[in-house]
């Protein structure tokens, strides 16, 4: 029982770290333009497909495929913002939200058209990466080298992001813009450019998540962005939407919660439990775990 619990805990951390990567995009975009970017799950899906194509069709090394997918989605995210959200900047938030849902439906249908409805399999791990090995930990717990890779890659990306947001000039401008849009402009921040940066960074992290999930589960499908997107969004809300540490923590919590449900023999209810956690947190703390209400003093 205990060993099973520990195994699922590690599975949960691996799954949760990919949720966290994707959740960051939701939370960063929301922090700046107060939009739930419903197309974000499809960017994740696109990242998985681009990574897969680069490996199988173009025979690129997996590391370059990973970076290529990030670059592709970076550009894709920026273009989506320019086409679908920027023209609606001055209209109601609902209009932009509907536009986001539209982009999401468009992209998943486009993927269906191009790649078909059947799941496409990733090449076996030993061909593109390494042979899966399992390491014994204490009390019967196990971890695979693939899990270590997933967790470490996510962690490295998140540490880089945190450093960028805290220390760099652009990162500071992003925080300023998310706290007070007009005043950031009065400081000389080109707000449009900051919005582009936000979409670029968020989308590339989603692409990283897409490739990692593709390798981890071995399959890629046109509608894979829907459920994962919903989960990552849940993770962002759980942590407090707009908060970057919140998204990281929310992702991990959700992944672990889901896998512990599996450990307890409730695997058919794992989605229900994931969303149940959300409802519970929101009932107790409506702003999410790390969320703060920014006072708009006038």
């Amino acid at each position: 029982m205990l060993s099973n619990l520990l195994v699922q805990l590690i599975n949960g951390i691996a799954l949760g770290s990919t949720y966290a990567l994707i959740a960051l995009g939701y939370t960063m975009v929301y922090g700046i333009i107060l939009l739930i970017n419903f197309a974000h799950g499809e960017i994740f899906m696109a990242g998985a497909f681009v990574g897969l194509m680069l490996v199988t069709v173009f025979k690129v090394h997996i590391i370059f495929a990973f970076l290529g997918a990030m670059l592709f989605c970076m550009i894709m995210g920026v273009i989506i913002e320019k086409i679908a959200y920027k023209p609606l900047r001055r209209s109601t938030r609902l209009a932009a939200l509907i536009s986001a849902i539209g982009v999401s439906i468009f992209l998943s249908n486009l993927a269906n058209l191009v790649f078909g409805a059947k799941p496409t399999t990733f090449p076996p791990t030993e061909e593109i990466l390494f042979k899966i090995q399992t390491y014994e930990l204490i009390a019967g717990a196990q971890i695979t080298n693939l899990q270590i890779l997933t967790i470490v890659t996510s962690a490295v990306l998140m540490v880089c992001l945190q450093y960028f947001i805290k220390k760099s000039r652009i990162g500071k401008a992003m925080r300023a813009t998310s706290q007070d849009y007009d005043t950031a402009a009065l400081m000389g921040v080109n707000v449009n450019r900051i919005i582009s940066y936000t979409f670029a960074i968020g989308s590339s992290l989603a692409a990283a998540g897409g490739v990692l999930v593709g390798i981890y589960f071995g399959v890629v499908k046109y509608n894979m962005g829907f459920m994962v997107g919903l989960k990552a969004f849940t993770a962002a809300v759980l942590g407090g939407i707009g908060s970057i540490p919140g998204a990281m923590f929310g992702g991990l919590l959700l992944g672990i919660g889901e896998m512990l449900a599996v450990a307890l023999g409730l695997s058919s209810y794992r989605d229900a439990i994931a969303f149940g956690i959300l409802i519970l947190v929101l009932l107790i703390k409506p702003t999410g775990l790390f969320g703060t209400q920014i006072q708009k003093k006038v």
């Binding site: 500071k172 706290q179 003093k297």
Partner: peptide
């Protein structure tokens, strides 16, 4: 500009 209501970035 020094905006009305000060508008400092509260979390920075």
């Amino acid at each position: 500009q020094v905006p009305e209501g000060r508008r400092v970035f509260p979390l920075m």
